[in-house]
Amino acid sequence: MSDSTPPPDLPLVAFDLIGVLAEPSWREIDGAPDRERWHRLRAGAIEEADFWDPAAAAAYRACLRLRTDRLALVSRLRARGHRIALATNFARAWLAVVREQLGGSGLVDHWLCSGELGVAKPDPRFWSHLRGLAPAVVVVDDQLDNVVAARAAGLIGVWALPGADLEARLFAALAGARGPLP
């Protein structure tokens, strides 16, 4: 194996989107969020037009932004040879915005969106999609329930809390997953 070829057994790193790689949540621009309707949208059971009005839909697309500091972290992981997944409870209609902002960066290898899969975190069926992608998967999520559920499903969970040093804790988890990092 050459120096530039990553070891094949490096864990896949699966990032949550809102609260980890991007902001904001739809709830932050909706004056009266309807959680029940959201649960249907995120599972692909309804379309966005049944969720909120066109003005809200346009405003959310305009607000939605990837975090440059977190994209830099993803780039560093890729440089180490990790494959990257996006594992998100998200409406499929909004994914195009994220794809457009990522452009041709090629940062994300696998896209797991609840709106496309028809099942949302923390449902074990969501994690089974991830487990099929790699022998070892590290899940980075800002929702503790999802981290706990991922661990219960045999994945490695890292809780991404605002302010806590995510990069240090992620690399510690990766080191624990396969020994010292290269």
Partner: peptide, 21 residues
């Protein structure tokens, strides 16, 4: 945050990180 939620989140994290670091 009122405008630019992505930068706002990173800024608040950096403020907290100034103490933890």
């Amino acid at each position: 945050w009122l405008a630019n939620a992505a930068d706002a989140a990173a800024i608040v994290e950096q403020v907290f990180g100034a103490y933890t670091a």
